[in-house]
């Protein structure tokens, strides 16, 4: 683990300690369901950051394992409410197949297997594979620990910051029928502050500050669209959350939803502009 990565985890630790203290204080002075939810969200972040940090320390194969696992959880949640009904048992073989193809660098299989499966599958079922398996497999495919950390950190920070800005000053809902909690103020504030973070962390990427800034603007916007798309699917299926595995957040797919589109965008941008 390099010096930079250690510093970032140190920073995350400080942020979590402060957030936990603040959450504890809020809940003590003004207890409400909202503060209780805030605290369970923060507790879940402790676990998620610990798991992610462990995978980063253990290296490349652990990252593949982690994201294959997340992809399995996400696909399972997606399929559980699929309006097309119960998939065949072979459906879930897509997860090991895709991740094996990425690990062993069978590029054509990794790139084309799932997109081409669209010819043989009902649309929603294909969409599940595209978002939960294909999209997420681009994260460990980045290969470098620093790039994975950058992508996940900026996109997840953008989610959290959008939530915070929205709670603080959000007035105008962007898509009230899809997601009442997403506001214009939250989006602008969240994307702007996550972009500042992404520019600040430019040394994790092969680019300069300006390049990192445009890159984070791009991935946070893709992340927002991704979240919106998955929220629309939830509304269509008349469910509130994808699952109940992560206390306070909902399902795994509720947590990784922004990565589903942001990861391929980031991957291709890095591939295209890294000289």
């Amino acid at each position: 683990m390099t010096q930079e990565v250690q510093t970032i985890f140190g920073g995350l630790f400080v942020v979590l300690v402060l957030a936990s203290a603040l959450g504890w204080w809020l809940h003590r002075h003004r207890p409400s369901p909202a503060t209780a939810n805030l605290n369970s969200r923060i507790r879940a972040w402790w676990v998620m950051i610990a798991v992610g940090g462990l995978a980063l320390v253990l290296g490349r194969y652990a990252l593949f394992g982690l994201f294959a696992g997340l992809s399995w959880f996400a696909l399972r949640e997606f399929a559980a409410s699929d309006p097309a009904g119960r998939p065949g048992a072979w459906y879930f073989a897509a997860v090991p197949a895709q991740f094996a193809a990425v690990i062993w660098d069978w590029q054509w299989v990794a790139l084309l297997l799932i997109p081409l499966a669209g010819f043989a599958l009902p649309r929603q079922r294909w969409l599940g594979l595209l978002l939960c398996v294909y999209g997420l497999s681009f994260v460990p495919a980045l290969g470098q620990v620093e790039l994975v950390l950058y992508l996940v950190l900026v996109v997840q920070a953008s989610d959290v910051l959008q939530y915070l800005w929205g709670r603080a000053i959000g007035r105008h809902a962007i898509a009230p029928r899809i997601s009442p909690s997403k506001t214009v103020e939250g989006l602008v504030g969240g994307v702007a502050s996550a972009t500042v973070l992404g520019t600040w962390l430019y040394y994790l990427t092969p680019f300069g500050p300006l390049g990192a800034m445009s890159l984070s603007l791009l991935i946070t916007s893709a992340g927002f669209l991704s979240g919106l798309l998955l929220s629309a699917l939830k509304r269509q299926r008349k469910i509130k959350d994808w699952g109940t595995v992560i206390t306070g957040h909902g399902g795994v797919l509720d947590r990784v939803d922004s990565l589903c589109l942001a990861a391929p965008v980031f991957y291709w941008m890095v591939k295209a502009f890294w000289r």
């Binding site: 696909l75 399972r76 949640e77 399929a79 559980a80 119960r86 048992a89 879930f92 699952g243 109940t244």
Partner: peptide, 20 residues
């Protein structure tokens, strides 16, 4: 909840799903 989606009557193989 949802067990019939994972392994309904007459099915041989369970399909992953979210039961609670």
């Amino acid at each position: 909840r949802n067990a019939s989606r994972v392994l309904p009557k007459r099915a041989v193989f369970p399909v992953p799903g979210t039961c609670a």
